[in-house]
Design a protein around this nucleic acid. Structure first.
Lengths: 365, 365
DNA sequence: GGCTGTTGATTATGCGTATTATCAAAAATG
DNA sequence: CATTTTTGATAATACGCATAATCAACAGCC
């Protein structure tokens, strides 16, 4: 079988260009481009010629130059993935991975490759050896002086994480200049329309609260982190609305990293708690234990969202599940529709899962 | 403080180019480029002019166009990452991740982004929804009809995993065509020189064996998997050499996935075992338990390499540590030297770590 | 057989930057 | 002062591709 081995003399050292392919196929460079882009602009290439060109490409091992494609205004079937640094001290790798899996799956379906954007280590240019990227730990100011500009090499970009104020300004510009961008997680920027994929945090929170109420809890508390990003706001809103809806007692507590003031539990006779994340729950539970308050007996709780640390959650903890993998998939799809320019760009929100558990306890009601 | 806010009228819709900056500063586009690139090529820009240009850039909010930079510069600053499918039933994600971390770190240092190659789902074009890429589970024939061609999008490629025969042929072609490629793990292909980064498996195995011998074991066994890829061969060799060196009794057992024949332990009065991987160790230990053989008392063992499953190894298991993250970093460095065309391309091998543990037991010696 | 419409392909141009060769003016040298 | 050297900046070009404009050949039509 005469396998299509490229001519070694031609292929050595430098990648073949459309011009060379054209030469081999006996056509013009423009024709090669047409074959590649499926005769978009009214120009027709008959099958015979198309085949000659394809053969020539195969023979030379031609592969388009992504930078040239982008510079000339075309697509290169590359989707960028960009993650902002974490605000959490623990490694975000385990957190981001499910998203990335979903992104990768759907990108494969669309026959796109992924461009994972790296950023210089915190110690600045070439000095440090610290972690970077989605496997980063700790808080840094990542972006190079170039800002987001390197993202433009891809057809579009999927972003994850929490940009700070400065980064948001830069991001706003990127988008207003027309770079197709989709966020995982709801992010709102003044002046631009930023499509996103999010989960129904409000609904999931309401669901969790109902679960507590069904177990007899009447006096409840929502414990959130001090930093309130969009999803945290959603949850708070969901909580407060559900509190009103169910006609029970509820209040919101925002916690910094210090020791929680537990008096509120005793003073207000609270028995049902919702924790925004695992870290808060850990802190609270151990502080409660110091006061002699144990979970199933003295109070019940639920966690809003899966474990952050990649490990398993302790047995019996009721919690909502964020459909991370599906969010990744949907983000790719959404980005593709943006790239098609098809419809008005909307956003997507997906339902959360729910895992019940003995941590809900049983209230006095 | 007059923060460097770009003129909103200008920033909308289209971004400024070097030409526009040049116009504002009253210089030529070439001068702007010189200012940006720090007068590399003998051309000098006096401070006064330089400052005018910088001011103009600031005023317009100029940001270089990456695509143009890379087109002109001849490099995309993109490193490809390609993983072949796993032969193991479990997800390889946890296995590959440390490598990827190292790759990402070093790529950031070199100011390169990573191109993660996705592959169409096993069900063929657009039909399936199955996993792909490094988050893949199971065994498939991934590459698109184009073969390895899309790999050439990147400046060079780092490869992981075990290519099958067909894939090796394809790979050989890719490399002989001049695509800069570095493998993580020793891979040898007939006819081409394939640089790789590997760990000193043989030395690590010898070290583990010495540890067993120091604990008094004299009759030893090496338990390896049926499939013998390069690293497995290295380990076997290291074992056999060390056995000869130490003048003890030793033999190699290659195991398929069935139940291990344990008679050998009793027949040969073996007390010290080296396991090639965690799965084999698990199988063996449970089979031994059925025969009433317990680890610390009746025999000792060590594991060659970290856990596959991403989880922790059981307490006390002695094992060697593969420097995966460092291997990832070194692979990027090696690839960079290949890209530079600097030296003759060599390969790198790194020492393994060693974690001692009670599983070594204590032999009769 | 002159006209129009279609098919198949080409030429020309632009994308934004890096770089080389070039050039004018100024400074240094004899 | 004529000539070489240095300085400061520019014009020209290449990078590889997409696309609009153009053109030649050729069919159909009255």
């Amino acid at each position: 079988m005469p396998s299509p081995v490229p001519d070694p003399a031609l292929s050595r050292r430098k990648r073949p260009t459309q011009r060379e392919v054209a030469g081999l196929a006996g056509v013009s460079q423009a024709a090669v481009s047409q074959v590649l882009n499926g005769g978009q602009s009214g120009v027709r290439i008959p099958d015979a010629t198309r085949q000659r060109v394809l053969d020539a490409m195969q023979h030379l091992g031609y592969v388009p130059n992504v930078a040239a494609q982008r510079l000339a205004g075309g697509r290169n079937r590359i989707l960028g993935v960009f993650t902002y640094e974490s605000v959490f001290p623990s490694s975000r790798r385990d957190f981001f991975n499910p998203f990335l899996e979903g992104i990768e799956q759907e990108a494969a379906v669309l026959d796109c490759d992924l461009l994972l954007h790296t950023r210089p280590a915190p110690g600045h240019l070439n000095t440090g050896r610290s972690n970077t990227g989605y496997s980063n730990t700790g808080h840094t100011k990542p972006l190079s002086p170039q800002g987001h500009s390197r993202l433009r090499l891809a057809d579009g970009t999927i972003m994850l994480g929490l940009p700070d104020q400065e980064q948001r300004a830069d991001l706003t510009r990127l988008i207003s200049e027309g770079h197709p961008t989709v966020f995982i997680g709801r992010r709102e920027l003044p002046g631009v329309l930023l499509p996103y994929v999010t989960a129904r945090y409000a609904a999931a929170t309401a669901h969790a609260l109902r679960a507590l109420v069904q177990r007899g809890h009447r006096r409840t508390l929502y414990v959130g982190a001090a930093q309130r990003h969009e999803s945290a706001l959603d949850r708070e809103r969901g909580y407060l609305e559900a509190v009103a809806d169910l006609g029970i007692s509820g209040q919101v507590l925002r916690l910094d990293d210090g020791t929680p003031h537990m008096e509120i539990m005793l003073d207000q006779q609270i028995t049902g708690i919702l924790f925004e994340n695992e870290r808060l729950a850990d802190m609270w539970l151990s502080a409660a234990a110091h006061l002699g308050l144990q979970c199933p007996q003295d109070f019940g709780f639920a966690l809003l969202g899966d474990p952050l640390y990649g490990a398993e959650l302790p047995e019996g903890w009721a919690h909502s599940r964020i459909p991370r993998q599906e969010m990744g998939r949907q983000a790719v799809r959404l980005l593709e529709t943006v790239l098609q320019g098809d419809s008005e760009l909307s956003s997507v929100d997906l339902p959360c899962g729910w895992v019940t558990g003995s941590s809900l306890g049983r209230g006095p009601g």
